[in-house]
Write a protein that binds this DNA or RNA. Sequence first.
RNA 1: GCUCCGUUCGUCUAGUGGUUAGGACGCCAGAUUUUCAUUCUGGUAGCAGGGGUUCGACUCCCCUACGGAGUGCCA
Length: 512
Amino acid sequence: MENNIRVRFAPSPTGALHIGGVRTALYNYLFARKTGGTMVLRIEDTDQTRYVPGAEAYIQEALDWAGIQLDESPWTGGPYGPYRQSERKEQYLAYAQQLIEAGHAYYAFDTPEELEAMRERLWAARVANPQYDSLSRMQMKNSLTLSQEEVAARISSGEPYVIRFKMPRKEEVRLHDIIRGWVMVHTATLDDKVLMKSDGWPTYHLANVVDDYLMKITHVIRGEEWLPSAPLHVLLYKALGWEAHMPKFAHLPLILKPDGNGKLSKRDAEKQGFPIFPLEWIDPLSNEKVAGFREEGYLPEATVNFLAFLGWSPGTNDELFTMEELIEIFSLERIGKAGTKFDIDKAKWYNQYYLRKRPDAELAGMLQEQLDKLEVGYEAEMVHKVALEIKERAVFPKDLWKDGAVYFIRPARYDQDVAAKKWNAEAQNIISQFAQAVEDDAQALTAERAKDLLQQVLDKNNVKIGRVMQAVRLALTGVGSGPDLMNMIEIIGREETVLRLRQAVHHLHVTP
RNA sequence: GCUCCGUUCGUCUAGUGGUUAGGACGCCAGAUUUUCAUUCUGGUAGCAGGGGUUCGACUCCCCUACGGAGUGCCA
């Protein structure tokens, strides 16, 4: 380890990991690798009521798919484990008590109903900032207002309590964010956040600060939604006496919905028909299914490249980078401040580029996979030729099948619009003669030879090629568009070509 | 409501006082082609508004507008 840079990605296992989470993980990873630091993953599962089975496995699989490697995690282990907050539960209370002893926190016994009543009262009194804070806490039931004896009695009697942070009344909190610069907040606007819940678990704020400290995290790179609570975290570091070990912060811009405004949500994905999750996910509780980048045919390298540029740019005109290259040029300072709209067209463009970059054999394999799945018969050699023929047209692996199907399956019907426009007596005549010529020909049926034969027929009948090509296409494929026809003839072979041409002549009728 | 953050082509962005405001996606057009797609070439389109500061503002400051996030015993 050349230096001590340590970053963490700290997801909560409450469902499928959002694509924004993948980006956060990616930025952490790029920064860690770039600086020779360490990438840590910590599971933040302090809310027992929100735990969703399978979510943790999903996180692991999604990061693995994206190529984001973890140096320390629940799965890889590491010197600062355990890496699940649920497995570190015992430690948090002691830190909360340390804060109480130092006068930075206190016990509170208010019931949910009493809290609600307080908010309503404050609201009715038109208090600018109705919350449990330095102003209102003296009206509440806590160790600041109750006698020491009563507090002790309540606790020993088993009455539920929380521990709240005692927000200073008048203090200016300054925090430096790598992306945003200095951010100043006055403590008078902040509330007394709960640190320990009545169920004995810590809240995010406490657990996060304690674990980041214990795990020696040097840079906290997380979403912008955490910015408002960052001042609290700074105060926590100070109150715990860890100011010297406070990590640097970088709050990432949010990923917004493509149209209109607001955070990208599951609803947008459904409405617009594109995924916003890395992997497909079926919610174990609702059985609801959401689409994943992987299942939709997005390649990991395309997804990573796309995600990297959602809020960051290298400052040059280049935008095609592999993970290795991203690591080379990434820097926190070049992350933008403004929210970023999710542009699926750009993702498709990346996908097309990376799909084409895959070796031909791999593309053939993708096509073969789909043929197998659909139980379509084929010869291995032909699959390779077809893949080569259609790779330029594909954005997703599934397009390989979409455009490749005509090579493997004889047309069962013919596009009527194309037939009406292009199929006529002249074309039918030429195609009949062409079929015969192909059948009678003794030479190997290459694309070139096929073209020669067609040209000979055309010359004999004094017809220009443009007048019949669409009809030939219709005869061979049943549709009006597709890849090069002569190459197709070479690929499907003499017998199939003749068969298809004659079938078309037989089935298609000339409209008078 | 309050706090914080933000605002360059439709979208992602470059730009750190003097530029014809650059690139990419998308879109449009042309070329190529047996069609569609690809490819190539070209085009379209932007500094939210108003005040300052300055010889000079997209760049610095202030205000307004608009947008976003947070405001839970959720993370």
